[in-house]
Design a protein around this nucleic acid. Structure first.
Length: 777
RNA sequence: GCGGGCGUGGCGUAAUGGUAGCCGCAACGGACUUAAAAUCCGUUUUUCGAAAGGAAGUGCCGGUUCGAGUCCGGCCGCCCGCACCA
């Protein structure tokens, strides 16, 4: 979409726009020195990639994973296209920010709901995914257990209707609290009755016009329109419940119809208040005699909460009552237990040009005919015009006119293209064999997949990450992949954020144009005072961006990498500041000085002699913890330890000429320092490595081996507490004897003073850690 | 409304239930310099004290424990996700 929008706004072709951006980003990634295997690069907009996508789509059709149906869809009026549910954020298009409308359109769907249960239960196996992401997916899939059952209906004259009203509920225990039924405005019953009911017809139109944005939903009061039909209570012969069309019932969930129990549901309560319907409490504290309620009683199931006012259910707990009602419904055949999911099928049609064409043909004779695989790819036409709104493919003079692959009579191509999330749902599988004839080479996929460590922003928790999990299953079913889960481990990293600046007139100003003068921020060229705004995600619209090229020109790639890793744990957002970058840059200078100094020292071996031992202990201990931290992606902690190591080396260098043993220790520490910093500052590390006299590259060097006796501490500082308050500390050999410790501790002046005149009741000794003397007056 | 997370110095942060504040930034003092920058050394939670040494302190209130930033309960605040899902 950005490619196509650029085309519309600036007249450049989406293709050249895309490839130019790829070239820029490739150059920037390379200048950061990232270790990427560029021989595997491909672009998802290239026909050599999307032909496989088209072929797999045809396999998906044959496997029953695809459906085309008319449905109410999310329409983005700015981007002029349909959006999937996942792409509607707060009632607005995820990209355009426009308020999304509801439209009825024929659309292609991938049947992700077939995998709802599996996608949910398999989350338990993704133990190295963040709990947060798993929970978000769980909530999004939204499994609920309940019952569907059918009411008999009669009209205003008491005549029984042929059709019944089927509803879904999770609270069948509250059936005796039912005081009305409600259907969605789009429910077939409401549609049919509106033909002869002008008030209902008007109501339906009003509801449709209201839209689905969050603001509208929040503000909208519960409204309804009577259908003038009545539902028979399943257990009470004389009770007839009025049926309404209501604006708060969603057609897309369950049966699009409910029974209302105002005593135990906020919405139903609001509705009953407005239309003066009975409010019957049916769940309450055991032994209570509640007959009226001021508000819905929403207390959870519990020992002391039982059914009341509910005939044969009286006295049962909610769980017992549910079971009883389910039993009776099922034996009388009016209902059954059902499981419902919130998850909807994935609408993949987009009315846009710059995407992968959906490889089907609409034939007036044969209907929908997939393009034969031998004729793939269905390529996008290069010459397109963006002079009018809507889909350029539909407007193209020739492209869509083809003969039916089946009967060879004139037919038209599908002009919708795929949602780009399809492109990203299997690219990782393609990376394993980017030039293979088939979408995925089985052997390569077996070797590489699932992805060991996937890294991305949490914003994809229920978009890309859910789509990919489904897509892997679909590829598995169609024989393209041998696994269901694409990503073994997931890490959600934070973003680089930055202060925002703007002028009094409200214009956003680039950070590079903002300077500090006499403590106040002003515009670098105009001198205009600037307002400092929030620290936010870097975005072009707020101009709070720092160009990677500028950073690299000013500080170099290593400084940029170092700063991004050093300040904050990687899962958190990091604020890019000039001062922070400056600090990292100073550190690179410091490393360079230290390594230069070491390089000038004579050759010497690291020994166990006393002179070098203290430094060696620091070096070996540092490497041990840094290794552990790096393995756990705790980069900020590793960096703190690297600082400590370098801080220990400075003073040692001052006195190095006095002892060959110290020189040996320094040379070893220098090698260690360079090796452990190499993953984060690769360029400087290589320079330092050469300077230290090695003729290989650090990147090819084995990770340093630590010596256990140097890593282990032999002396520990033990804190001495009296009643939990620290009063002193002593240095003792590791593993010191309890009895000896207790005797020594009680002889300490500070301790004597603290326990003077009191009785020692207990001495708690945690070996190598702490001694706590418990005293009483 | 429902679900989840987080509250620690001036700031970014660190602490398997065991000495709160490692490391860095900023600030301040000193050395070097004609001077500045850079660099090096030192100070830096608050508070009382000349010092030695006390006292308080991880959003607030309470609990468990010999011992709580960490565990439990209740508040307050901020952030994120979902949201008329029956």
């Amino acid at each position: 979409m950005p490619a196509e929008n650029a085309a519309i706004e600036r007249g450049v072709h989406p293709k050249s726009w895309t490839y130019e951006n790829i070239a820029t980003m490739r150059r920037q990634l390379k200048s950061m020195g990232l270790a990427i295997d560029w021989s595997r690069e491909f672009a998802t907009c290239d026909p050599s990639y999307y032909r496989h996508e088209q072929a797999m789509f045809i396999d998906f059709i044959n496997a029953g994973l695809v459906e085309r149906r008319v449905s109410l869809v999310n329409w983005d009026p700015v981007d002029q296209t349909v959006l999937a549910n996942e792409q509607v954020i707060d009632g607005r298009g995820w990209r355009s920010g426009a308020v999304v409308e509801k439209r009825e359109l024929a659309q292609w769907f991938l049947k992700i709901t077939d995998y709802a249960e599996d996608l949910l239960t398999a989350l338990d196996g993704l133990t190295t995914w963040p709990d947060k992401v798993r929970l978000m997916q769980k909530n999004w899939i939204g499994r609920s257990e309940g019952m569907t059952f059918t009411f008999e209906l009669e009209d205003a004259n008491g005549r029984k209707l042929d059709e019944g009203l089927t509803v879904y509920t999770t609270r069948h225990d509250t059936i005796f609290g039912a005081s009305f039924c409600a259907v969605s405005a789009d429910h077939p019953l409401s549609k049919r009755l509106s033909e002869a009911n002008p008030a209902l017809d008007r109501f339906r139109k009003e509801v449709a016009a209201l839209g689905t944005s969050e603001e509208n939903i929040e503000r909208a009061e519960k409204r309804g329109c009577p259908l003038d039909v009545f539902a028979h209570h399943p257990f009470l012969k004389d009770v007839k419940l009025p049926v309404y069309a209501a604006n708060f019932v969603l057609m897309g969930y369950g049966e699009g119809a409910i029974f209302g129990c105002p005593g135990h549901d906020q919405r139903d309560w609001d509705f009953a208040q407005k239309y003066h319907l009975p409010i019957i409490p049916v769940v309450g504290p055991r032994g209570s005699d509640v007959s009226v309620s001021d508000a819905p009683y929403l207390e959870k199931d519990g020992e002391d909460t039982v059914l009341i006012n509910s005939d044969f259910l009286n006295g049962m707990t909610v769980t017992e009552a549910k079971a009883e009602v389910a039993k009776r419904f099922e034996s009388s055949g009016i209902g059954k237990r059902t499981v419902n999911f919130r998850l909807r099928d994935w609408g993949v049609s987009r009315q846009r040009y710059w995407g992968c064409p959906i490889p089907v043909v609409h034939c007036p004779e044969c209907g929908i005919v997939p393009v034969p695989k031998s004729e793939l790819p269905v390529e996008l036409p290069e010459e397109v015009k963006f002079d009018k709104p809507g889909n350029p493919l539909a407007h193209h003079p020739t492209w869509k006119h083809v003969n039916c692959p089946n009967c060879n009579t004139p037919a038209t191509r599908e002009t919708d293209t795929f949602d780009t999330f399809i492109d990203s749902s299997w690219y990782f599988a393609r990376f394993t064999s980017p030039h293979d004839e088939n979408p995925v080479n089985a052997e390569a996929a077996k070797y590489w997949l699932p992805v060991d460590q996937y890294i991305g922003g949490v914003e994809h928790a229920i978009l890309h990450l859910l789509y990919s999990r489904f897509y892997s299953r679909a590829m598995h079913k169609t024989g393209h992949l041998n696994a269901d889960e694409p990503f073994a481990s997931l890490f959600t990293q934070g973003m680089v954020i930055h202060e925002t600046f703007r002028t009094a007139a409200g214009e956003w100003v680039l950070p590079s144009d903002a300077i500090q003068k006499d403590g106040a921020w002003v515009h670098a060229t105009t001198g205009e005072p600037l307002i400092v705004g929030g620290i936010e995600k870097m975005s072009k619209s707020k101009r709070n961006v720092v160009d990677p090229d500028t950073i690299i020109a000013a500080y170099g790639a290593d400084t940029a990498r170092w700063f991004m890793l050093s300040d904050t744990p990687p899962e958190r957002d990091i604020e890019w500041t000039e001062a922070g970058a400056e600090g990292s840059w100073k550190f690179t200078q410091k490393i360079w000085r230290i390594i230069n100094d070491i390089a000038e020292l004579p050759e010497a071996e690291a020994t166990m002699a006393a002179d070098g031992l203290a430094l060696r202990r620091v070096a070996h201990r540092s490497v041990a913890t840094i290794t552990d931290d790096l393995n756990n992606l705790r980069f900020n902690r590793s960096i703190a330890r690297i600082y400590e190591l370098s801080n220990a080396m400075g003073p040692a260098l001052q006195i190095a000429n006095k002892s060959p043993d110290l020189i040996g220790a320094l040379r070893e520490a220098g090698d260690f320092l360079v090796t452990v910093m190499a993953p984060m500052m690769p360029h400087l590390a290589e320079e330092c490595w050469t300077l230290l006299g090695h003729d290989t590259a650090v990147v090819d060097t084995a990770w340093p081996k630590t010596i256990a006796s140097l890593v282990e501490v032999d002396e520990v500082t033990i804190a001495i507490q009296v009643n939990g308050k620290r009063r002193d500390e002593i240095l003792v050999a590791k593993g010191a004897d309890r009895g000896m410790l207790e005797t020594r501790v009680l002889e300490l002046e500070n301790i004597k003073r603290a326990i003077e005149g009191k009785t020692v009741k207990k001495v708690i000794i945690v070996p190598d850690r702490i001694v706590n003397i418990v005293v009483a007056d």
